[in-house]
């Protein structure tokens, strides 16, 4: 898919672990893993909002468009 999820980079920048983020956002670690690996088909605005709030960033910091 041409949308890349840069969640790993943001987690590393903030020094946060996946478990912690999953707990703060209110999703399971399995779902967070799906998101990180790019297997997710869609992301809810509420989830995106929660991730941005937890990582103190903008949606563009997490999502990136790359041409195939």
């Amino acid at each position: 898919m041409s949308i890349i999820v840069n969640l790993d980079i943001m987690l590393a920048k903030r020094g946060m672990k996946s478990n912690e983020l999953a707990e703060r956002v209110g999703i399971t670690t399995a779902n967070l893993s799906i998101l990180k690996t790019g297997k997710a088909k869609a992301i809810r605005f509420s989830t995106l909002e929660a991730i941005c709030k937890a990582l103190e960033c903008q949606p563009s910091d997490i999502l990136e468009y790359v041409e195939d």
Binding site: N31, L32, A40, K41, A42, I43, R44
Partner: peptide, 8 residues
């Protein structure tokens, strides 16, 4: 269902 399951 697959799409719904993969919507985070």
């Amino acid at each position: 269902k697959q799409e719904n399951d993969l919507t985070i």
